[in-house]
Computed example of a mutant assay.
Amino acid sequence: MLKRSVLAMVMVVALALGVATSAFADGDTDSYGAVIEDGRLNKTDLSAPLAVYYSTEEMLGYDEDLDWNYTYDVITGIELWALDSDSNGYLAYSVTLDQINTALAASSSDYVVFQHGDYSIGYSESGWYWVTGPNGYEFTWEA
């Protein structure tokens, strides 16, 4: 009877671990803890010295089949917001998609689109953006 109880307990623990690990295996970074839900791309990095956002423009669309107007956001660039010790932010730098595309057209490899002091925005031909900021901060994301 003791062997069955131990075996049952081991199976329950193994099942629980399997469920827990599968919850994290789907790439859901929000499952790892606190996040900042204000639209920033680096929302899971609570100690970041800057916040990275896409700049967007709201566009008006029309669906002829439904005779219905709708709005949607179009990404127009990337913004870097510097953060002070109280997490107050101010726009430090921004680049437009036109600036990014012009820089990419002039290069056939990884390219720094913008750099000023500790701040930079770059793009890799493998499809990743990166930013750098104060104190050696780096953040990357897939385009």
Rank of each mutant, 00 (worst) to 15 (best):
Q115F: 02
V19H: 06
F114V: 00
V113M: 04
N101T: 14
A25Y: 01
Y93K: 15
M59Y: 10
L17E: 09
T76P: 01
W141Y: 15
S126G: 12
M9P: 07
P49L: 04
I121G: 02
M1G: 13
Y111F: 14
W130A: 05
M1D: 08
W81G: 02
D45N: 13
E37R: 14
E142Q: 12
Y70C: 02
G133M: 04
S87R: 11
Y53Q: 10
T76S: 06
V13P: 04
L7Y: 00
E142M: 08
L2Q: 13
L80Q: 07
S31E: 14
A14R: 03
P134R: 12
A25F: 01
I36W: 07
Y72L: 05
S47M: 13
S126F: 07
G127S: 02
H116L: 01
D67M: 02
I100V: 15
E58A: 09
Y70D: 13
F24N: 09
E142P: 01
Y32P: 00
A23Q: 10
A106F: 00
R4P: 09
A20W: 06
G127A: 08
A8T: 07
D110K: 05
S109C: 02
D67N: 08
L60C: 00
M9K: 07
E64H: 15
L91M: 10
L17I: 12
A23K: 13
R4Q: 10
I100G: 05
A82H: 13
E58S: 09
Q115A: 12
V113R: 04
L83H: 15
D84E: 05
W81D: 14
S109Q: 07
E64V: 12
V113Y: 00
E37Q: 14
G133C: 01
D118I: 09
D118W: 08
